[in-house]
Design a protein around this nucleic acid. Sequence first.
DNA 1: TACTTATATCAATGAGTCTTGAAGTATTGA
DNA 2: TCAATACTTCAAGACTCATTGATATAAGTA
Lengths: 120, 120
Amino acid sequence: MHEKQALGAFAALSQETRLRIVRLLVTAGPEGMSAGAIGEAMDSASSSRMSFHLSHLEQAGLVESRREGRSIIYSAVLTALSGLVEFLMRDCCQGHPEVCHPAMAALSSCCEPTKGSIRG
Amino acid sequence: MHEKQALGAFAALSQETRLRIVRLLVTAGPEGMSAGAIGEAMDSASSSRMSFHLSHLEQAGLVESRREGRSIIYSAVLTALSGLVEFLMRDCCQGHPEVCHPAMAALSSCCEPTKGSIRG
DNA sequence: TACTTATATCAATGAGTCTTGAAGTATTGA
DNA sequence: TCAATACTTCAAGACTCATTGATATAAGTA
C-alpha cells in the first residue's frame, strides 16, 4: 500500500454512497452481490449512479467484479481494506505505540483472535 | 465514531497535502509543530493554503491546535486515527474475522504489544 | 432476428474543492 | 502607538466530482 493507493482508497471511502456499498459488500461476504441488488439496497439509486460508484470503488481496488449470466457480481476486496488499515497504522505508530493499542483492543473484541490477548 | 465523522475523516485524508500533514504531525508527536514549520516541510505551500488544509483537518477532528506566542501549534489527535481504524475494522469484520487477522498481524509488528501475541 | 434484462458509458449540469493573492486579526517588541 | 511576525479569512477562478437522462453493450429468451 503506497500513498497514491491510500489516497485513492480514502477518496473512495469519503463518499456516503460508496462507503455504504463497501459496508454492504463486506457483510455480503465472498459471494458478493449483483449491481442491481446493491442498487435496490441503496436509497433511490439509478443504474448509472450505481455503475459510477462501483467502477470508482473497483478502480480504487476496494471491490472486484465478475460476470454471472446477465448480472455483474461485486464483492469487497478484504485485503485492500486491511492493507489500508495497515497503511494508516504504520504511519500512526512512528514512535508512539500508544496510538495502536486502543485500536488493537477494538480489533480484538471484533475479531476474537484464536490465541493470545491484547492489553493496552 | 459515526458514519458522518468517518466520512469527514476519509475526505480529509484523501487529499495529498492533508495526508502528508497528518503523517508529519504523527511523527512530530504530542509537542506538535507550528503552522509555519509545517508549511516549510511541505512543497511550495503558501500560508493561506496551509491554513485552509489545517482548518479542514481540525474540523475533521484529526488534528488540534493551541496558541504559543505568535505561533499556532498543531498536533495529531491520535485517538481520532485509532477511532477511524476501529470504525473501519468494525465494519469489515461482520462475520468475516479473516479480514482482521492480517491487519492485526501488521499492527502487532508495528506496535509491539506489551503482552500476548496475535495469530492469524 | 427481435425482445427483454442487466449493466456500462456518454454528455451536460450543478455542487463542491483547491489554489491564489489581498486584506484582516492576534501577538510581540521598540 | 507603530512596525514586524505569524496565521487566518475572504473572494474569485479553475478544476474535479456526483447526478441525471439518454444511448450503448452484453447476455439470455422466444
